[in-house]
Nucleic acid binder design. Structure first.
Length: 618
RNA sequence: GGCCCAGUGGCGAAGUUGGUUAUCGCGCCGCCCUGUCACGGCGGAGGUCACGGGUUCGAGUCCCGUUUGGGUCGCCA
């Protein structure tokens, strides 16, 4: 059935054939996307990664197999390019030409695929992932994967021109239990000992700074054994970089220029690959904006206060308003109670939703509750001017009116409030803001809005651990002027840490690192490390820092997220060739799986009975 | 670990308060068609309604459990 390639050379890809080739002989190879057999004449759409071209055969003397080709078979065609004899197809790049074949080779006949190889299909994700190699044939995914490759090349071009060195760091490293759960790899030669796969090359890149490679970057695979999300895979790729003898502004500057470069270059690539014009246009607009004005900065505190999030979506307003002052003397216990407990009372104004039905408000309440709010007090100002306040009986007419004024409430507005700890209020109002912004159509999905979020807190209190934890990581440099409060008020110390945020998604983050040993020692002490444990875990780094460490700082992007956002994808899985599903398994390869008893023995591992039974069952 | 959503021929969906032979579109197979490109026409095959149990005279439909996938909270320094 299958024929060989012997004596044939592909001359170009399908989409690369242009009118210039009219009259010339070409050899094309690809997949049968569609076969339209009209009886006396057969049209075959031949597809490869570059696009589709039409092959036309008339019955007189043509290979009869043209009329009965199986879709998705791999074929080779030699023939002559001609101007179309019939109507042109304006939807196709090769729509004015076609190929009249001389010879056909069926390189491999395809079975009927389990789903259609087309854009816009609505097939179950698990089926698509089981046959990922077929799903990847769809033009939509082809475009995204090729866009990813081209973007990585742009990143390399830019960083290389800026003097960054691409240096690889190992994947088998020591485990550092701070932060995310590690993926562990058992050692055969050291029974009972384990490597960890890197969560990021953090410590290694800092050591490269000690070695004098003052500008480093790496497209680095990272691993975190945590639950998945639409924008989170257990195995993902970072664009990781570190610079010596620089401060925060230097890092932000070079990265702003990187993003300017990328957004400027991307649209042409996307046009070439056939992306949606609106999306490309959105990126062009963004490039123009940040090319002229750079990328704005917002402090972590402002981001939290105004948007309830450390990754604010700036594509729309609906800012959070603090009304603590306005309600501190009212009769509503929920408000006053929260204030007495050291919390805050804040609200958002959903313009135009004042007539929202009660059921929908209940749904919003559920959203607020997911984020820890105990309820959702609201004032609905109906379009006829009548006011429905869910806590009216605790308020005087005057107090309610003042509250409405403070919220800039007008007829037809819905005012939603949260009264709780700062954290809960931010989380719930921030989530409501996003939900309502979407509902009100305030978010333009072809718009791209960057922002640098700066001045993160150095530490974050953990109830679970009952201690302060590093918000970024334990090597993050505090602001000098805040450092004196490290004992008296550790929570108020700000860090020289920064995130780059795009449309409400954290694209990347970084910090200036501590290069002074007294600060580092104190930091580890505050984090609850005994000198012994610190030495055990980071001893190599602390020692290295004793031999002349340059001041250094860096940043790492989530490459998958970056590609996801710029390609207009809803899920990170669309821009990763072989992604994993929610429970971190691979539906195509069937990983993870059980292994031979022999392999376990070599690794000095034993599976406990209970898990063994589960393994046998599956 | 919690919560929410979904699973009906190969694919996507419909299926009413539980009621005869489970419906439609795409795909697939056969025949016809010389300018199609979402080709068209005629005909056909293809279903343990995710799995297990229960309620009922009767379950795709109701209940319980399981499972698979998605979203999300926790988690992700």
């Amino acid at each position: 059935m299958a024929e060989s390639l012997k004596g044939l050379k592909r001359t170009m890809r399908c989409g690369e054939v242009t009118e210039e080739y009219i009259g010339k002989k070409v050899t094309l190879m690809g997949w049968v996307a569609k076969c339209r057999n009209k009886g006396g004449i057969v049209f075959v759409d031949l597809r490869d990664r570059s696009g589709i071209i039409q092959i036309v055969t008339e019955s007189e003397g043509a290979d009869p197999r043209w009329g009965s080709l199986k879709t998705e078979s791999a074929i080779a065609v030699t023939g002559t390019v001609e101007k179309r004899g019939g109507a042109v197809n304006p939807n196709l790049r090769t729509g004015t030409i076609e190929v009249i074949p001389e010879s056909l080779r069926i390189l491999s006949t395809a079975q009927t695929p389990p789903f259609l190889i087309q854009d816009g299909i609505d097939t179950r994700e698990d089926l698509r992932l089981k046959y990922r190699y077929l799903d990847l044939r769809r033009p939509e995914l082809q475009r995204k994967i090729m866009f990813r490759s081209r973007t990585v090349q742009l990143i390399r071009d830019f960083l290389s021109a800026e003097g960054f060195l691409d240096i690889e760091t190992p994947s088998l490293i020591g485990s550092t239990p701070e932060g995310a759960r590690d993926y562990l790899v058992p050692s055969r030669v050291h029974p009972g000992n384990f490597y960890a796969l890197p969560q990021s090359p953090q410590l290694l890149k800092q050591l490269l700074m000690c070695s004098g490679f003052d500008r480093y970057y790496q497209i680095a695979r990272c691993f975190r054994d945590e639950d998945l999300r639409a924008d989170r895979q257990p195995e993902f790729t970072q664009v990781d970089m570190e610079l010596s003898f620089v401060d925060q502004d230097d890092v932000i500057d070079v990265n702003t220029r990187l993003l300017q470069y990328l957004t400027k270059k991307m649209p042409d690539i996307m046009d070439e690959l056939g992306f949606d014009e609106k999306l490309t246009c959105g990126i062009r607009k963004c490039a123009e904006e940040i090319g002229k004005n750079g990328i704005g900065r917002i402090t972590w505190q402002d981001a939290m206060d105004l948007y309830g999030s450390d990754k604010p979506d700036l594509r729309f307003g609906m800012q959070i308003v603090d009304v603590s002052e306005n309600v501190k003397d009212c009769g509503f216990g929920v408000f006053t109670g929260a204030l007495e407990a050291g919390g805050v009372v804040r609200g958002i104004n959903a313009k135009g939703l004042g007539d929202m039905p009660r059921k929908r408000i209940d749904k919003l309440t559920e959203t607020a509750k997911t984020y820890g709010a105990k309820g959702l007090p609201y004032i609905a100002i109906h379009s006829d001017g009548s006011v429905k306040c869910s806590f009216a009986k605790f308020m005087t007419e005057e107090q309610t009116q003042k509250l409405i004024e403070a919220m800039n409430g007008e007829n037809g507005d819905l005012l939603l409030f949260a009264a709780d700890s700062f954290r809960v209020v931010c989380a719930s109002l921030g989530a409501l803001r996003l939900e309502l912004g979407e509902e009100l159509g305030l978010i333009d999905h072809n718009e791209f809005r960057f922002v640098w979020v700066v001045d993160f807190p150095l530490l974050e209190w953990s109830d679970e651990e009952n201690r302060f934890m590093a918000m970024h990581h334990p090597f993050t440099m505090p602001y000098e002027e805040d450092w004196e409060r490290i004992d008296s008020d550790p929570g108020s110390v700000r860090a020289q840490a920064y995130d780059i945020v795009l449309n409400g998604t954290e694209l990347g983050g970084g910090s200036v690192r501590i290069h002074m040993d007294d600060v580092q020692e104190k930091m580890l002490e505050v984090l609850g490390f005994t000198p012994e444990r610190a030495n055990e875990q980071f001893g190599f780094l602390l020692t290295a820092f004793k031999y002349g460490v340059p001041p250094h700082a860096g940043l790492a992007y989530g490459l998958d997220r970056m590609i996801m956002l710029f390609s207009g994808s809803d899920s990170i899985r669309d821009v990763i060739a072989f992604p994993k599903v929610k429970d971190a398994s691979d539906l195509m390869m069937g990983a993870p799986s059980t292994v031979d008893e022999k392999q376990l023995k070599e690794l000095s591992l034993a599976i406990t009975k209970e898990e063994d039974e589960t393994a046998v069952q599956s």
